[in-house]
Amino acid sequence: MTQPRAFSHVDTWVFDLDNTLYPHHVNLWQQVDARIGEFVCNWLNVGPQEARSIQKDYYRRFGTTMRGMMTLHGVRADDYLAYVHKIDHSPLEPNPALGAAIARLSGRKLILTNGSVDHVDAVLARLGLVTHFDGVFDIIAAEFEPKPAAQTYQKFLDLHAVDPTRSAMFEDLARNLTVPHQLGMTTVLVVPDGTKDVVREDWELEGRDAAHVDHVTDDLAGFLRKLPHPK
């Protein structure tokens, strides 16, 4: 059995945003999910049940519902993003423990998300993590091609001059770690801690035992604290 990749060589730390930098059970994404359903409902003039089916079909096929709506129905990304990210961020609370754990990591810290910079800014402000990251690569920088598309990771690596063989990627969806692992990244899957109900599709919670997942944690701050101190 192949040993999971380690962290001693890592100088770039890459984090997803939603359900990764804050706990799944906050269910912030549930608000976005509901707004997406409303958008699909209104744009396609269909009922909520049909809209839900279309939304989830596009999410699985295209990586984001937005990409499906753009590709098949001519939706403008700006309109979509402005609508679906108009949510209440107040369920998020400051997380100084996570901030301290991220601060002690040696090297750059970057965010790679299928969300927008505006959404990132709002989430980081609520978590008290604004000063802890050196850059954000969002869906607009990706030219609206979401993870897990291989070209999106390559654009991210090129734009931020990241060596994937010296990087670690933290994600809540196992499928979004396939390409990073192929590129040489150390991969970490962040999962619910099991103490509270979460609103997720079954497939979103799969992949803990996948070969492309080096590590699994239900406590990101605790996991980061246990990594060796930089010399």
Rank of each mutant, 00 (worst) to 15 (best):
A100D: 12
G207Y: 04
R104N: 14
R52Q: 05
A103E: 13
Y80L: 08
E143Y: 04
Q49M: 06
L159S: 15
W43T: 14
T2W: 10
W29R: 02
E206V: 04
V75Q: 08
T187N: 11
A150P: 06
D219C: 03
A103R: 13
D18R: 05
L177I: 00
Y83F: 15
I140L: 15
R225G: 06
A150E: 10
H181E: 12
P180W: 12
D163H: 04
L183T: 09
V32R: 05
W13R: 08
K155V: 07
T195N: 11
R76T: 00
L124D: 06
A34F: 12
T113D: 09
A97L: 15
E171M: 09
L98T: 01
G115T: 02
M185V: 05
H25T: 00
L28V: 07
P96R: 01
H73G: 09
K231R: 06
A100T: 02
W29C: 03
A174K: 13
A82L: 09
K147E: 13
V123T: 10
K109W: 07
P23C: 03
A168W: 01
R166D: 01
T152Y: 05
H25M: 04
T195P: 01
R104I: 13
V123F: 02
T186C: 08
Q30S: 14
T71H: 04
I36A: 08
V10M: 07
L21R: 09
D202H: 12
G115E: 01
L17T: 11
Q3K: 02
W43R: 07
Y22N: 10
I140N: 15
H24F: 06
E145P: 12
F223L: 06
H132I: 10
G207I: 07
N176G: 09
A82T: 13
G37F: 03
A141I: 07
D158W: 00
H89R: 05
G99R: 08
A125K: 11
Y59W: 07
G63P: 13
Q55R: 07
E93L: 13
N114S: 05
K109C: 08
V14N: 09
K226C: 13
L92V: 03
L44Y: 03
A141H: 12
D158S: 11
Q30V: 03
R126D: 11
A142P: 12
I36T: 05
V46K: 02
F62S: 06
V179W: 06
H229W: 00
K155Q: 08
D134L: 09
K86W: 00
M66H: 10
K226Q: 13
G63D: 08
H89W: 10
F7Q: 05
R104T: 14
A82F: 00
H89I: 03
L98S: 11
A210T: 07
A103M: 02
L159R: 14
K226D: 15
K86R: 15
Q3H: 05
V117N: 04
E206W: 02
V188D: 10
E206M: 07
D202W: 01
D134H: 14
L227V: 03
A150L: 03
T65F: 03
D57S: 14
F39E: 00
G128M: 11
D57T: 14
A142F: 06
Q3V: 05
L157K: 00
V40G: 07
D18T: 00
R5N: 07
L81H: 02
E201D: 14
V123N: 02
